Amino acid sequence: MRASEEQLRIWMIGGLDGDAEAHTALLRALVPMLRSFFGRRLRGAEDDVEDLVQETLMAIHTRRGTYDRTRPFAAWAYAVARYKMIDQFRRTRRTVPIEGLEDILIAEGFEDACAARMDIDRLLGGISDKQARAIRATKINGLSMAEAAKAGGMSEVDVKVSVHRGLKALAARLKGDG
């Protein structure tokens, strides 16, 4: 059974306050969550999944002092996990299909949309404004190509091309080519 956001946060704060049992409970509860998180993104790479789970647990342990007690814990933990996954992609130079990029960039389980929004804003800040608007409208806000075109005053083809080129640029940046 998955621990709730509140329980994870309580364990994290307890661990920060020196409660070794709370810290141990937190790390144990994170194992299945992280396996699921990485498993959905790295199908067929079970060894990488286990390595990333361990690396993420170590990072959470060593960087626990950076956690802001007033913020949701899951958002912070999934951000650490995403960075570990991106590091793994860079180390292995694994390519990610452009069609699945949005699934990798957006982590589920966030209780605090602000943390995710800051990550997305930072990622989209590295591509053209037109591409960022098209990606935000279609991949983040869930509009169809036609709806995004109408809302943005663009043609549907222009939206499709902007999304494609923007995702390609983001994939290149994540691979370290851009």
Rank of each mutant, 00 (worst) to 15 (best):
E99N: 06
I106K: 08
E6M: 04
G126N: 06
K175I: 14
R69V: 01
A115R: 15
R94S: 07
T24N: 07
T66G: 14
L27V: 03
A29I: 07
G125V: 01
A134W: 06
M154V: 04
A171Y: 13
K84Q: 11
L105C: 06
D17C: 08
S155V: 01
G15H: 01
F89D: 02
A149N: 06
R64W: 14
R165P: 00
G142M: 02
T66A: 13
D48L: 13
G44K: 11
L42N: 03
L8A: 09
A3L: 03
R41G: 01
T62D: 15
V161S: 11
M58D: 13
H164R: 14
D19V: 00
A59D: 10
R136V: 00
K84F: 14
F110R: 15
E156C: 04
D158K: 14
M58L: 15
A148L: 00
A79F: 10
Q88A: 09
R28I: 10
V159L: 09
R43A: 10
K130I: 05
V161L: 13
S36K: 15
G15T: 00
V80F: 05
M118D: 12
Q88E: 12
L27K: 07
E108D: 14
A116D: 12
R64I: 14
D48E: 11
L174D: 03
E21C: 11
A22F: 09
M118A: 13
V159A: 11
E108A: 15
R136P: 00
R82S: 06
D17Y: 09
G125T: 02
V80Q: 02
R64F: 13
A151F: 02
F73A: 07
R93N: 08
A172V: 10
H164G: 15
E111R: 12
A75C: 08
A45N: 08
H61Y: 12
I120A: 11
M118E: 12
R94Y: 10
L57Q: 11
L30N: 00
N141M: 07
R35T: 01
S162K: 10
G153L: 00
F89A: 06
R133A: 08
R71E: 04
G109Q: 12
M1V: 04
L167E: 04
V80H: 03
G44A: 07
A77C: 05
V49D: 01
G14M: 05
A77N: 05
E99Q: 05
A132W: 13
I127N: 04
K160E: 11
A81C: 00
I120S: 09
T138L: 05
A149M: 07
R173A: 08
V157F: 14
V163G: 02
D17L: 09
E46A: 07
L27I: 03
L101F: 08
D103F: 14
R173S: 05
L123H: 07
E5K: 02
P32I: 05
T56M: 13
R28Q: 10
A149Y: 01
R64L: 15
F89W: 11
